[in-house]
């Protein structure tokens, strides 16, 4: 899995909008890849995950309860949208992706296709 840095080339109109890049952890084991992404403020309804071909796109909208008439005085988070795009490699099975969102942390599990699972190859003495 490698990160697609050519986001600007995407034809998707929303891709050209500025967005925050959520920090992620990616860990691979013998049966698949697990991805964690920090997306605080995103509810389940505002999370958008989609896979097109070999591209995985993670998007989310931050919902803040802002009282009427609030004047911002200091901001480290200046945008209200997260977006990050990854390119999946072909041994991963995009049909079997599972996702859970808890306390603003997205956990994605992308299993490897059956044929790509590790196999020990017997060496026969000739």
């Amino acid at each position: 899995m490698s990160e697609a840095r050519n986001i600007a080339q995407s034809k998707d109109a929303r891709a050209s909008q500025a967005a925050l890049m959520p920090p992620v952890d990616v860990v691979e084991d013998s049966t698949g890849i697990t991805l964690f992404a920090d997306m605080p403020g995103v509810s389940k309804e505002k999370l958008d995950l989609h896979i097109e071909g070999d591209t995985l796109c993670i998007e989310g909208e931050v919902s803040l309860d802002i009282p009427e008439g609030m004047e911002p005085s200091y901001a480290e988070v200046n945008l209200s949208r997260y977006r990050r795009v990854f390119t999946l490699s072909k041994e991963l099975d995009p049909a079997k992706v599972s996702a859970e969102l808890s306390n603003g942390v997205l956990k994605l599990r992308i299993p490897k296709a059956e044929h790509a699972q590790p196999r020990r190859i017997e060496v026969r003495a000739g």
Partner: peptide
């Protein structure tokens, strides 16, 4: 992020 209204100070920690 920090913001304020005439009645309160609002702090948002991500």
């Amino acid at each position: 992020n920090v913001g304020g209204t005439p009645q309160s100070v609002e702090v948002y920690a991500f």
